[in-house]
Design a binder for these strands. Structure first.
Length: 472
DNA sequence: TCTGGGGTCCTCAATCTG
DNA sequence: TCTGCAGATTGAGGACCC
């Protein structure tokens, strides 16, 4: 999907269409998650500190992410992909590999192109959004093709042309080559994919180590036999928080670690998992990051056990100077049931996790949050008189709302007191109005009824971007 | 006013185990 | 019983991805 989060926001808010939109954390330490192509013109990009983005594009709309909405739209796209093939491998909420050959949706370049074109039409009809498709004989090439296709395009790499196409590309084009590896290669005089092929496998292994060296050399020769894997097991579950202001108080650090442990366990239990290794992550005032871990005798999902382990790990960390981030994770995952056996054998109490609905982390230098209603930027609201709208901004006891829906013209702006009884948070509306199913109708493009909002959504599902025309 | 959150995989050193 | 070795496991950190 193209600029996914920002595109969803533009689709649901007519007044933002064609405008610079930046989605991400709005706190003092937030970063950009995604921005619209209009914002990219100003130099804004993903992972950029929000403050820098605001300097570059002061007039852009700044919104907090609405993951539930994105997840629901993501699931709609995933359903379309699964209609093409049983082999769909989600990479994230907005990208997935599809083995078209395994699904019988394509058997050569031309049929793949047709399938890709139809997919893009269906995605548009069902979600109202644009998606790009990359078609090639392997995952790596399909991914590169989909990047080339963005925004709103389709690129097919014809079989036999792969190496010629890759040769002049920069090493950073290859998946797995980030800033560090890119620098490393550049210092060795290797800047293009062609240079990697020329350097030879031994040299690559010498420079980057066994695993990375072999893999990169193969990719440079356009060799990638990795299959599309539909089911991936979760390897770890973790939660972390960055604090607006560094925490210096050791007691408070301990309290936060306890909270994070509880949240982590809630997520773990939500997935029906337990784990053996508890990991504590601490980012200090100077951005140096350290992790401490402890492996238990058996897997657990007991909040008390995880909390105590995290506290022990914290004892071994010097937090003088303050911490900006804390995290707690569990890895070495096992089936939920194994934990019970262990807990019983050890005679441990199984404590319930306090149902604290993911409270805001404690911010230093800030009084306890007033019992004031919160109106996050971009979230939907409903007013008894003016109808559906979204929060454009809030502060100083007032909240500004723009009244419009995904299907309306750009709407009017009005300001209310934050405690106005006529104003209430609302569920997002579907981006495409629901079309009633007529008898005998079955095509996906005409029967989808907008996002499934409300209720629990499974984590880890995700949509589409690059498709794979299976090799062979 | 720099630098989120949730993951995966790899490497290396130290330690454990058979 | 002691020693040496190989392989597995553990713990920490780094790089990368979206």
């Amino acid at each position: 999907m193209d600029a996914f989060f920002a595109s969803v926001e533009q689709a649901s808010k007519p007044s933002l269409r064609g405008k610079a939109v930046v989605v991400g954390g709005l706190g003092p330490r937030g970063v950009v998650a995604t921005c619209s192509y209009e914002a990219r013109v100003f130099g804004v990009h993903s992972a950029m500190p929000m403050g820098q983005a605001r300097r570059l594009a002061p007039n852009a709309a700044y919104l907090v992410p609405r993951f539930e909405l994105y997840r629901s739209i993501s699931e709609q796209v995933m359903r379309l992909l699964r209609g093409l093939s049983p082999l769909v491998e989600p990479l994230s909420l907005d990208e997935a590999f599809v083995d078209l050959e395994a699904g019988g949706a394509a058997w050569d370049a031309e049929s793949a192109r047709l399938a890709g074109t139809k997919l893009r039409t269906d995605i548009r009809a069902v979600t109202g959004l644009t998606g790009s498709v990359g078609l090639a004989a392997s995952k790596m090439l399909a991914k590169i093709a989909s990047e080339e296709a963005k925004p709103d395009g389709l690129v097919l790499i014809p079989p036999g042309t792969e190496r010629t196409m890759l040769e002049p590309m920069t090493v950073r084009t290859l998946p797995g080559v980030g800033p560090a590896t890119g620098d490393h290669l550049r210092r060795a005089g290797i800047t293009t994919v062609g240079d990697i092929a020329e350097a030879g496998e031994d040299e690559l292994v010498r420079l980057l180590g066994k695993a990375h060296g072999h893999a990169l050399y193969a990719m440079a020769l356009a060799l990638d036999e990795r299959p599309v894997v539909a089911e991936r097991e979760t390897k770890s579950v973790s939660v972390e928080d960055t604090y607006d202001v560094d925490i210096h108080d050791r007691v408070r650090v301990g309290v936060e670690v306890g909270r994070l442990a509880d949240r982590c366990v809630r997520r773990l239990r939500g997935s029906g998992l337990s784990g053996r290794t508890i990991v504590l992550k601490v980012r200090r005032y100077d951005f140096s990051t350290l992790t401490r871990s402890e492996t238990l005798r058996g897997p657990t999902d007991d909040p008390g056990v995880v909390r105590e382990a995290a506290a022990r790990l914290l004892d071994s960390v010097d937090t003088t100077g303050g911490v900006r981030l804390l995290g707690v994770g569990v890895s070495g995952l096992a089936d939920y049931t194994q934990e019970d056996l262990f807990a019983q054998a050890a005679g441990e109490r199984v404590q319930e996790v306090a149902e604290e609905p993911d409270a805001e982390p404690v911010r230093e230098d800030r009084p306890a949050p007033a019992p004031e209603r919160r109106w996050p930027s971009g979230h939907d609201v409903r007013h008894v008189e003016y109808g559906h709208g979204w929060v454009q901004g809030s502060g100083l006891g007032r909240v500004t709302v723009r009244f419009e829906t995904p299907y309306s013209e750009p709407g009017r702006v009005r300001t209310f007191p934050v405690d106005d009884p006529h104003l209430a948070p609302a569920e997002p509306l579907p981006l495409v109005p629901a079309v009633p199913r007529r008898p005998g109708e079955g095509g996906p493009a005409t029967t989808e009824a907008g996002p499934d909002l409300g209720g629990e959504t499974d984590a880890g599902t995700g949509p589409a971007g690059s498709a794979r025309q299976a090799s062979g």
